Computed example of a mutant assay.
Amino acid sequence: MTVKPDWLRVKAPQRERVANVKEILRDLALNTVCEEASCPNIGECFNAGTATFLIMGPACTRACPYCDIDFEKKPKPLDPTEPGRLAEAIRRMRLNHVVITSVNRDDLPDGGASQFVRCIEAVRTISPQTTIEVLIPDLCGNWDALEIILQAAPEVLNHNTETVPSLYRRVRPQGNYDRTLELLNRSRQIAPWTYTKSGIMVGLGETDAEIRQVMRDLRTVDCDILTIGQYLQPSQKHLKVNEFIHPEQFTGWKVFGEELGFLQVVSSPLTRSSYHAEEVRELMERYPRSKSNEL
């Protein structure tokens, strides 16, 4: 794999804090995308006592060549105890904001929407002060399933765009760019009180013009929050990095995104879709929404 530039090097985590988080996760038999997807920020997030929980996994029904989550194992039936165990972990970690994501479960009629709802309800019961962000798959375009999730009223609905349209066939072969935009647009229409969010990874051969067009497209469907980060090759069997983008370019995209009207743009080489996700609580204070105060 290509040698990483200095700006992609991360500090060694504090072992005691990381070990404490891992102990909770192992004790409750929970998965995190931090571990399953080899996130470079795992040390920083675990040190801060945060994690992005991966439900219904860790086996995925899709084989995206950029992703380190396992797709060779057969997905297991949904575990009815998972929502309770997840809520207990959040209580123990005293999280103010939690991100709940999942593998793709195309084997399920609702894509796993019902399990997202059960997890949201369990968290609200045990930790009512915790704000909830769900990072969901495209549900194969099942908009009834999307509505089921949104009716549970997560504060943030996140669905990643991942890359530019010209690279979808190579990077996200089972995904669909227009379907991603439609999911975000329908989310805004179904639940205008929910903040919508999406993320893009760069360094796979896209152009600056293509990235900026994706940003315009996301604003067309009134997406509120955008993350942009550098793609890093998890192993030799995954897609290779085409280019390491300089931090100044990320700053330029942040400025452009703010000019387009995004409420928040998190753009840096190490940004991931859940990186510093807890900062959304500040955004919610600046731009409050509720069911009684719809857009």
Rank of each mutant, 00 (worst) to 15 (best):
Q129H: 15
I211R: 06
T220K: 14
R216Q: 12
P154S: 00
P137V: 01
G111N: 06
R169E: 15
I132T: 01
E162V: 00
L150W: 01
R188I: 10
E155K: 13
E182D: 13
L226Y: 08
P247E: 03
I211Y: 06
W253K: 03
Q233E: 11
I126L: 15
Y177Q: 03
L218Q: 09
M201G: 07
E206Q: 07
D178H: 13
Q151F: 10
T130M: 02
Q230L: 00
D208W: 09
T131I: 12
L167V: 05
Y168H: 06
P109C: 07
Q151M: 10
P137L: 00
T196R: 04
T207I: 00
G111D: 00
E243T: 15
S198P: 11
G252C: 08
V214Q: 08
E121C: 05
D222S: 14
E206C: 07
D217F: 02
I225W: 11
W253A: 09
Q189T: 14
L167F: 11
V117W: 04
A153N: 13
L139T: 01
L218C: 08
F250I: 00
V221N: 08
F250A: 08
I126H: 08
V202Q: 07
A145M: 03
W143C: 08
P192E: 11
I228Q: 03
C223T: 15
T125I: 10
E182K: 15
I228W: 03
D144N: 12
P234L: 02
P247H: 05
C119R: 01
D178F: 10
S166Q: 12
T196N: 03
T220Q: 14
T251R: 15
D178L: 12
I136R: 07
P154A: 02
R186M: 09
Q249C: 11
N176S: 14
T131Q: 04
P247M: 02
V134G: 01
A145R: 06
Q174M: 13
Q233F: 06
D208N: 14
A122T: 04
R188V: 14
I200F: 10
R219G: 10
Q115W: 11
P165I: 10
H246L: 09
N158Q: 07
N242H: 15
G229M: 06
T207A: 05
G111L: 00
A191I: 05
P137W: 01
D224K: 03
M215F: 06
I228V: 15
D110T: 00
V134F: 03
T130F: 00
L183V: 15
